[in-house]
Simulated scan of single mutants.
Amino acid sequence: MKRLLMTGAAGGLGRAMRQRMARHADVVRLSDIADMGDAAPHEEIVQCDLGNADAVMKLVEGCDGILHLGGISVEDKFSKILNANLLGLYNLYEAARAHGHPRILFASSNHTIGFYRQDQHIDVTAPMRPDGLYGVSKCFGEALARMYFEKFGQESALVRIGSCMEKPKNHRMLSTWMSYDDFDSMIECIFRAPMLGCPVIWGVSDNDSKWWDNSHAAYLGWRPKDNAERFRAELDAAMEKPGPNAALSLYQGGAFAEDPIFPED
């Protein structure tokens, strides 16, 4: 690509992936509402509130790919989720429609299906079962992306990220973990595919205990290589497993399934 836009560049996942983006595009345009530091020679820094339609329209101009990590990534007040995850995503898709349909990787979430039990194995045909307002916002995002594909031909990969971090932080993440390397290789496959469409893809490494079936997306050529199992002994030594009736043991969404909804002020 000539210019790749990465939103959410100041977030945890954005910071982790930032240096890796240079191999995907000549220029990487980084965006967030928060400070992102200084730009490297191949980078452009653009502070942007996704809820500002005019700003997002300018942000997308000149980009031929979008890695959309921006928005609220945890359970929060509906007003915050509304601006960043619903209105912000609509603004992004409208801007993409106006600027030639650059391919989009939309960071959806496992919290779209968080109320499935951990003894259930599902594929993308399973109905959504969001575990909070954050999960609901990602269900909206997937539906919005699908509509823009069906109506306007906007290609998007809807990546239901499990737990993308350096290593799993608890026993649930032995099933949901996706390594940075595996995410990076997924990004490459999504943007190089001759035809993408609008697939839902589980963002998970090749873990022994994974719950999700990605066989429908095999045409993309993505083959995750890492396995969270190598961290099991370390986790066993560092912490006790949660009890059998704890949300972390029962639900695929873990604690999100029991967290209260944040009240508005």
Rank of each mutant, 00 (worst) to 15 (best):
Leu4Lys: 11
Thr7Asp: 11
Leu13Ser: 10
Gly14Ser: 11
Arg15Ala: 12
Ala16Gln: 14
Arg20Tyr: 05
Met21Ser: 08
Arg23Phe: 02
His24Gly: 05
Asp35Ala: 13
Pro41Gly: 05
His42Ala: 13
Ile45Gly: 03
Gln47Asp: 01
Ala53Lys: 14
Asp54Cys: 10
Asp54Gln: 15
Leu59Met: 12
Leu59Gly: 08
Val60Cys: 00
Gly65Trp: 01
Ile66Phe: 05
Ile66Thr: 08
Ile66Asp: 01
Leu67Ile: 12
Gly71Leu: 00
Ile72Lys: 10
Phe78Thr: 09
Ser79Ile: 05
Ser79His: 04
Lys80Leu: 12
Ile81Val: 04
Leu82Ser: 10
Leu82Asp: 12
Leu86Cys: 04
Gly88Asp: 00
Tyr90Ile: 08
Asn91Ser: 03
Tyr93Ile: 00
Ala95Val: 06
Ala96Asn: 00
Ala96Thr: 09
Arg97Glu: 11
His101Tyr: 08
Arg103Lys: 15
Ile104Trp: 04
Ile104Gly: 00
Ile104Tyr: 00
Phe106Trp: 10
Ala107Ser: 14
Ser109Thr: 12
His111Thr: 02
Thr112Ala: 13
Ile113Met: 14
Ile113Arg: 12
Gly114Arg: 08
Tyr116Asp: 06
Gln118Ser: 12
His121Val: 14
Ile122Val: 15
Ile122Gly: 02
Ile122Ala: 05
Pro127Ala: 12
Pro127His: 09
Met128Val: 15
Met128Gly: 07
Met128Cys: 15
Ser137Asn: 04
Cys139Gln: 11
Phe140Pro: 03
Phe152Met: 13
Phe152Val: 05
Ser156Cys: 15
Val159Glu: 03
Arg160Met: 07
Arg160Ala: 07
Lys167Met: 13
Asn170His: 13
Asn170Ala: 07
Ser175Met: 14
Ser175Asp: 09
Met178Pro: 03
Met178Arg: 09
Cys189Asp: 09
Met195Thr: 15
Met195Glu: 15
Leu196Gly: 09
Gly197Val: 11
Pro199Ser: 09
Val200Gly: 00
Val200Met: 12
Trp202Val: 08
Gly203Thr: 00
Gly203Lys: 02
Ser205Gln: 03
Ser205Thr: 09
Asn207Phe: 01
Asn207His: 01
Asp208Asn: 14
Ser209Gly: 00
Trp211Ala: 12
Asp213Phe: 09
Asn214Thr: 01
Asn214Asp: 14
Tyr219Ala: 11
Gly221Cys: 01
Pro224Asn: 06
Lys225Ile: 13
Asp226Asn: 14
Ala228Leu: 05
Phe231Lys: 05
Arg232Glu: 13
Ala233Arg: 14
Leu235Arg: 07
Glu240Asn: 15
Lys241Pro: 08
Ala246Cys: 12
Ala246Trp: 02
Ala247Cys: 11
Ala247Ile: 01
Ser249Met: 11
Tyr251Cys: 09
Tyr251Asn: 04
Gln252Glu: 00
Gln252Cys: 02
Gly253Cys: 02
Gly254Lys: 03
Phe256Lys: 09
Phe256Glu: 03
Ala257Gln: 01
Glu258Met: 04
Pro263Lys: 07
